[in-house]
Design a protein around this nucleic acid. Structure first.
Lengths: 238, 238
DNA sequence: GCAGAAACTATACGCCGTGAAGTTTTGATA
DNA sequence: TATCAAAACTTCACGGCGTATAGTTTCTGC
């Protein structure tokens, strides 16, 4: 056993190579879109043979799944951080912080957004349960926190909601219900609806469909947010 | 000149072959997703060589652009028809008809939805101005009709809208302003926001992201619609 | 020092879009 | 009706892709 430990050395090199593969793949994606993630291009960039990558990832889809996980986690980190940084006492500001962080992340990482939410790569087949179930649930849980913050003001809008706990994924509820014990199913539905609102505007923008119709997607998003807060009945401070 | 006209014959055969290429391409897409649209597969299906297709479409991207146009037009036809079929006197019903037609079309033609709104095909590069500007504008115009129907009830929500005619694409306004002369810019913004709401929920559903969280996307969409109509202040009949 | 494992390369197969060149089919004209 | 150019189509080729198989190098633990 040397100082670093000889068995540790191999593992360290292995981990470094794995990291480099992912780093190069993300760089290729950033410059050429998810389509540019090819084993041969990664290998070329690293001075290796394409087949060498098979020592680290069983298939290209495995690599892509890992990338989706990493990128989705980064998105979840970004929105969580924005949420935490905003004052808990002001739901309106907090919700806007979350939403703006979501959109900003998407505009800064458009290719990452496509990787997560679009068709990631030519023939990619997502594994069962989705490629990044944990990160997806983190985002959903964050959205539920939005809904929970709004719920005291908004609940009157959902008197006749037909939702039931059985309508939702148990894995999501395992995270959500302990965190917000008093929240009814309708609030989780509200969270998903808000997700839809934000995802729709952002994805139209990222995919260039909005830009064809308006030069001011910014205004649109901010007006959406203002209306959302207003519709939810959240009082504006000051 | 024969009965059919000899010059007409060549053109007719040509048109038929063109149609068949598109038909086969759409069939491949329906069964295997947009990725399955390959010149070689189409040719194989038609008993031709891949290169023969170059006599009809300059490149694969040209073919894809044409397909997007066709499919987007079919979507526009579907929502327009639903709108026209619903009673003009009842804005709530009409808006729900439009939205349900949009979602239903997407669920029946998920691959078409991906073709239009996602990354259509591996290396596809959309032409300038988008692949199907006319169909896109038809959908937007339809959305503006929704907003126009709601506007008498909803305008009080948009007192402090910062939108201006210059925020929108002139091509869109050319269609919209003559049709709805009294509509302010804020109403067009509302149309785009509604687009975002619907597109978000539908695309999350089509891409399988919703299904991971809820087993009842139907309920979610219908609740969204009910809330939308309510938020817009549209009176419910009966 | 050496066996064995781990990391990597070489070669090959079948997919893809597409360019260049050659062949067949077809329809108008002399 | 024979002819000839244009249109329709095929053949061959190139480089790119994922990946399977087999072979080679390099490192580690005894």
């Amino acid at each position: 056993m040397t100082v670093t430990g000889s068995r540790g050395r191999r593992e360290r090199l292995r981990a470094e190579t794995t990291t480099e593969i992912k780093k190069v793949a993300l760089a290729l994606m950033a410059s050429g879109g998810p389509d540019a993630i090819t084993l041969r291009a990664i290998a070329r960039e690293m001075g290796m043979t394409a087949n060498a990558i098979y020592g680290y990832f069983a298939t290209r889809d495995d690599l892509v799944t890992t990338l989706i996980n990493d990128v989705y986690t980064a998105l979840a980190d970004a929105v969580d951080a924005a949420w935490e940084a905003a004052p808990a006492a002001d739901p309106a500001v907090r919700i806007e912080a979350w939403a703006n962080a979501f959109r900003t992340w998407a505009l800064v990482n458009p290719q990452g957004f496509r990787l997560i939410y679009g068709d990631p790569v030519p023939g990619y087949q997502a594994p069962e349960g989705g490629p990044a179930p944990d990160a997806a649930r983190r985002v959903c849980t964050g959205l539920t926190a939005l809904a929970a913050a709004a719920w005291p003001h908004a609940q009157h809008l959902y008197q006749d909601s037909a939702f039931d706990w059985s309508d939702f994924d148990p894995g999501l509820l395992d995270k959500v219900r302990p965190a917000f014990p008093d929240l009814p199913p309708a609030a989780v539905a509200l969270a998903l609806r808000i997700w839809g609102h934000l995802h729709g505007l952002v994805s139209l923008e990222v995919y260039g469909h909005l830009h064809t119709q308006t030069a001011s997607p910014d205004k649109l998003f901010h007006e959406e947010l203002a209306q959302l807060v207003q519709t939810l009945g959240i009082p504006r401070r000051r």
